Computed example of a mutant assay.
Amino acid sequence: MSRSTSADLDQAIRREYRHDRMLRVRDLGLAILTPVLLLIIWELLALVGVLDRRLFTPPSEIVVRAAEMTVSGQILPHVVATVARLASGFVLGAIVGIAVGLLMGLSRPMRAALAPTFTALYALPKIAILPLLLLIFGLTETPKVLSVAISVFFVVQINTLAGIVQIDDRTLEAARAYRATGWKLFRYVLLPAATPSIMTGLRVAAGMAVIVITAVEFVASDNGLGYLIWNSWQLFQPSTMFVGLITVSLIGAVVTGLIILLERAMVPWRSAGRSRRIREVGTR
């Protein structure tokens, strides 16, 4: 390869990297600007009277109320209670869901036996199971944690099973040709191939878990952010209600962000794929 050709390739690769970096900066800017713009519009509409301030508390007043609740320690016990239930239920449901999904994917008889039942149970609204759990375990923490765990279980199990089932037969044939069987086949072929689907399931389950724990706390708890939101509505305290709603949203965003970081660590070839494609463009 001549020096001029090599220089042209290096210049093309640098252009691709600069373009990719600019797109990332633009996307980050849009992600920050959009909610800020919506909050400004909300504040202005409340200021001019288009929105009823008694119902739609302006963001500035919500910030003041949030600061008051934080300084007084009023909101901290509710956050701790919700996060504890959410974390316990999510971890339990994810572990069992991954294990059952892998077993069903590896065992056709088990898949045939359990798939119809799980399909029927998945369609059942998870919050509808709460009365049964309350009858069995009473007004304890167990029904709240199990409600989250059951919701997470089905989403993760379905995605894990799909990740195993959709593996290309040619991949399995190639693995067997290299004498990959048993644990080696599972560790180096099946599990890595299913990991992207598992991580997708965890991301979807995270949002569902936040919804379920909030709904459960509406009706079966005397603390937690769901209780705070519902109690504020009953007492007609919209500013406190909005603080609870925003806090729930932030918790959901943090949980999803942690799963995205875990996905990048568990599936590094996804992020590396774009860099490889950029290099391939430069070598054409």
Rank of each mutant, 00 (worst) to 15 (best):
212 V>D: 00
50 V>P: 02
166 Q>I: 12
111 R>L: 07
194 A>M: 09
97 G>L: 03
153 F>Q: 03
270 R>D: 07
67 A>T: 12
194 A>F: 04
108 R>M: 07
227 Y>V: 06
240 T>S: 11
67 A>L: 15
38 L>M: 14
116 P>Y: 06
11 Q>P: 00
171 T>S: 10
275 S>M: 13
81 A>K: 05
237 Q>I: 02
133 L>F: 09
260 I>A: 14
263 E>Q: 14
107 S>H: 08
218 F>A: 01
5 T>K: 13
53 R>K: 14
247 T>H: 05
149 A>T: 02
23 L>H: 09
108 R>I: 07
14 R>Q: 14
158 I>Y: 02
234 Q>Y: 09
252 G>M: 05
250 L>P: 05
122 Y>V: 06
118 F>W: 09
59 P>Q: 09
230 W>N: 09
59 P>N: 10
87 A>W: 06
241 M>K: 04
124 L>V: 15
179 R>W: 07
218 F>V: 04
119 T>G: 15
216 V>K: 00
61 E>K: 08
84 A>G: 08
5 T>F: 12
198 I>V: 15
250 L>T: 10
250 L>Y: 07
102 L>W: 01
193 A>I: 07
259 I>W: 01
188 Y>Q: 13
135 L>Q: 10
90 F>I: 03
33 L>C: 12
226 G>E: 00
171 T>G: 05
264 R>S: 12
128 A>L: 08
